[in-house]
Write a protein that binds this DNA or RNA. Structure first.
Lengths: 342, 342
DNA sequence: CTGAAAGCGCTAACAT
DNA sequence: ATGTTAGCGCTTTCAG
């Protein structure tokens, strides 16, 4: 951690010019027909003294910051923090850094963050867009700023994105529940949201319900900081409709559902949740889930974004990754309480 | 998101020099005795055209990047992601950005990250130091790099830090368990770690055990990716020693404990865990915890670090925040299985 | 093949 | 009070 050494120091100590050093460092030795001997000598010296270019100066000059902006809905949601973790790792391997923020599904905050990143001249964005961000994203696109959305997308915008096959995920889960003949009344809990992932999950649910000629029970819930209202509403929804089973559109909705079950001492209906959570594996019974392959999603995101930055994307990358239904105890509950104990 | 406007554009359009604009923008109008009228005019114009200085150029010039490096053990642990969330928020309010990384308690990785941040010229560091980082941190200090540690500290290093009162937290929890006369055999589960937080928790446990003249049962566990070994060891520890109660030194150790209970169908001993987790509130019975005030910790961290950056810390800030014991169902379990059902 | 030199956009010492 | 100007460290054009 000694005093910073400059490219000019190297040039002086080696008795050559900074240009030559710069060319060699940037892999243009061949192109500029610099002798192999010199190239090797410079490279070795650089390694010996541990020279690292000043990224700031480099960025100022090249206009590339080597920083990627990651804006997720909520970094404390394990799904997002997991994706973030992988993204971070892959980005680093490619010489990029991540500046991340959560925006708590707040359009205004998201706009500010994007502006902030723009001021910082990040090289590209990975965003889970909240509602009302269409214009901001549109102007980003118009300015040719590399951008990839994930988890959801904006149908009216021609952007790259990586999302889950939400329709199939919801369909499979609902079908799984309906396949059990004891489940007649299967409900769906979602959010007041027009985002694509929520719409697709709802459609998947409806498709399965229709195939089985059952009635749909759909409850949308408003989540705020004092979440008790959601818990109460879920209690009402589950008990008033005497639901046999419920599909929850997110992990935190399912957690609120479990809170309702606990608070009101309800019999747990058969249930499946979207997105895994430590809690679900340990809950008794363990909770069945529709999972996303976070590593895969992160990989696709970064690769798409880096290709975009390098101008290597021939076409729009609109990637849909498959969902996986993990059946656990909560979706195969014996419906007769008397036998449940054994 | 139109074309970027420069400070020189402003100067030209207003018919004044860049210096004047720069002074005004940097709040030196008074100091430089620039007329109030002009100051106001410039400020208004700047707001009107939405000028934002190029941070890169500013950084290159001032040597300040306005970026803080946050290196935590594991961003997917809710404790750390919560602290990160607050830190991020407060930092932004103060005009700083956060670049964060998790280092998975890997000394080598942490060293690389610090080097990386150093190359990026971050203005300061907030670090949860893993073992073996002493030298790296020492050289950071020698170079007068602003630095605050948290969650744990390095006793041999004179650094600022913000940590929990781990001793008291463990003592209170253990005492709470021992206060119940049915708890004779109270165990402690920790990690193979010489980090201060683990040592202090152990000492708190020992102190309480000694006060009650009970035997200590201490199990250290090695955590790796395939965590099954930990689960098995915990099963062995709990059942072979016929423990009445267990204090877990971290939330994930407690989760492994719960996995052991589930996998081996053990009777759950009375238990308390360090650091809260969604799971703990919903588990049946809910799990008692020693909690940290993450908002408070984040606040102290940022303020200490910013003061250090501004050279305003008169002395070493070694802050110990109080712990809080939250008693829930898991530490008041009726010990007689026959009655447990009701 | 290599070097001189012009910036990237901003700050601040120095001049007026 | 305000303007001129020299850099911060790097890349890259242009001239040898």
């Amino acid at each position: 951690m000694k005093k910073r050494i400059l490219i000019s120091d190297i040039a002086r100590n080696l008795g050559i010019s900074v240009t030559t050093v710069s060319f060699i460092l940037n892999g243009k030795a061949k192109e500029k027909r610099i002798s192999e001997g010199l190239t090797k000598r410079v490279l070795e010296y650089v390694k010996k003294v541990g020279y690292k270019p000043n990224q700031l100066a480099q960025s100022l000059r090249t206009g590339q910051s080597k920083i990627l902006g990651l804006i997720v809905e909520d970094i404390s949601n394990p799904f997002f923090s997991n994706v973030a973790k992988y993204i971070e790792r892959i980005a680093y391997d490619n010489g990029y850094h991540i500046i991340y923020c959560s925006m708590d599904n707040d359009g205004t905050k998201a706009k500010e963050l994007i502006q902030l990143f723009y001021d910082r001249q990040v090289d590209g964005y990975i965003i889970t867009p909240p509602e009302g961000l269409e214009d901001t994203l549109a102007s980003l696109i118009k300015n040719n700023v590399p951008l990839v959305l994930f988890d959801r997308y904006i149908p009216t915008l021609e952007t790259h994105y990586v999302v889950l096959d939400n329709f199939k995920g919801a369909f499979d889960a609902t079908k799984h529940l309906l396949d059990n003949p004891v489940n007649k009344r299967v409900g769906f809990v979602s959010l007041y949201s027009n985002q694509t992932q929520m719409k697709d999950r709802l459609e998947g649910y409806m498709k399965a319900i229709d195939e089985f000629h059952q009635q749909a029970f759909i409850k949308k819930v408003k989540i705020d900081e004092e979440e008790d209202s959601a818990v109460e509403q879920l209690h009402e929804f589950i008990s008033a409709n005497r639901l046999d089973a419920v599909l929850f559109a997110t992990n935190y909705l399912a957690i609120d559902g479990l809170k309702a079950v606990k608070a009101y001492n309800l019999a747990l209906p058969n249930m499946v949740a979207f997105d895994d959570h430590t809690l679900f594996k340990l809950y008794e019974p363990s909770i069945s889930v529709v999972t996303q392959d976070t590593a895969e999603i992160a990989k696709e995101l970064i690769h798409t974004l880096l290709n975009e930055i390098k101008g290597k994307n021939k076409q729009l990358q609109q990637i849909v990754v498959p969902s996986e239904l993990q059946v656990r105890g909560s979706s195969i509950i014996n419906p007769y309480p008397a036998e449940q104990i054994s």
